[in-house]
């Protein structure tokens, strides 16, 4: 078969591995950046101090100090201004509004890299050393741990043990909020899952919000969702990559939602060019070889959709809407 109809490029492509990876760490007014642009950072290096309960104070700042919005301000040692230090936010009627607070948490980078930009009150951007596997969403904060687990099994709350402390677990197609909460309590650093339903997401976020409102600092923990909100097997290409990463230190970051790994010697297997994965519909989760585009077909519900022929490993073929397919590149 030759010609455009045999062109697998008609199937939407999804990058398997992304490089370079620029990660954004959000800051709020008052948070104190500890790094500067162009600096190198190592794993675990503190990059900022985040205020737990920021407030705004009116303070007279001598003009001789040439204050600018976003600049840092340090008060006199006697603390008569109410703040020891803070961030200059804006000046109004001769007095500066300074954001500051008594308690702060360190923000650490879970990967090594080079600081690309620092914008007080807005963000720090770091280019990670290494590559990334993109997810749909990541809940929680940046974290790091040893990747372990089996993507083809489902993890239940009772299945967790202390051996998983410090690890990032790959848990397969779906996970519930109770398991996530217990995993965090047992010192697990993160969870990678294919699908997380809206209910479990809501319950988990509510649990995390309750934890955050407590005064003690939360250990770093994140949930990386690879595919969506419904149960679906891990894609073969992703499975192979996660298998290769098993036992290695990896990081989860939230913006963009991604699993970051820095293993230069790791050769990521290139999926066959015509390998396609069925993402939705009755055949969801199956993988096969693209044969050819076969034009518009009528599918259940009366929808006329552009379709193609896919041959599955068991030798069967099926007409699948192009929109139900994806391929990794």
């Amino acid at each position: 078969m030759t010609g455009a109809a045999s062109d697998v490029r008609l199937v939407p492509a999804r990058p398997l591995v992304i490089a370079p990876v620029d990660v954004i760490f959000r800051l709020a007014p008052g948070d104190r950046p500890l790094v500067a642009a162009s600096e190198s950072v190592v794993v675990g290096a503190p990059i900022a101090e985040r205020l737990r309960d920021p407030g705004l104070e009116e303070i007279h700042v001598p003009t001789a100090l040439e204050p600018q919005p976003g600049g840092r301000w340090s008060g006199p040692a006697d603390g008569r201004d109410g703040l020891e230090s803070g961030e200059l936010v804006f000046s109004w009627r001769g007095r500066w509004r300074v954001a500051g607070g008594a308690l702060s948490d360190p923000l650490e980078t879970p990967f090594a890299g080079i600081v690309r930009g620092v914008r007080p009150g807005t963000s720090i951007t770091i280019r990670a050393a290494g590559r990334g596997l993109r997810g749909i969403v990541a809940l929680g904060g940046p974290t790091r741990g040893r990747l372990q687990g089996s993507p083809d099994s489902e993890l239940r709350a009772g299945g967790l043990d202390v051996n998983s402390a410090g690890a990032i677990l790959v848990v397969g197609s779906r996970v519930d909020a109770e398991t996530l909460t217990r995993a965090r309590a047992m010192g697990v650093r993160g969870v990678v899952v294919t699908g997380l339903s809206s209910k479990e997401r809501r319950d988990y976020l509510a649990s995390e919000a309750r934890q955050r409102s407590a005064l003690h600092r939360l250990p770093p923990f994140a949930v990386l969702v690879l595919d969506g909100a419904v149960r679906r097997p891990v894609a073969g290409a992703v499975l192979a990559l996660l298998g290769a990463l098993s036992g290695h230190e990896v990081a989860i970051v939230t913006d963009p939602p991604m699993l970051v790994f820095d293993i230069p010697s790791l050769t990521v297997p290139t999926p066959p060019a015509d390998l396609v994965r069925v993402r939705g519909g009755a055949l969801a989760g199956r993988e096969g070889r693209f044969v050819e585009a076969i034009g518009a077909r009528r599918f259940p519900g009366g929808a006329h959709l552009e379709a193609c022929l896919v041959r599955f490993p068991d030798g069967t073929t099926a007409a699948v809407p192009l929109g139900d397919l994806e391929r990794f590149v």
Partner: peptide
Amino acid sequence: DRMRELRIAPWADATGEG
């Protein structure tokens, strides 16, 4: 869940109930 899936892959599952 279905609205989230629609956001992630707007063309997927566009038959039947889709």
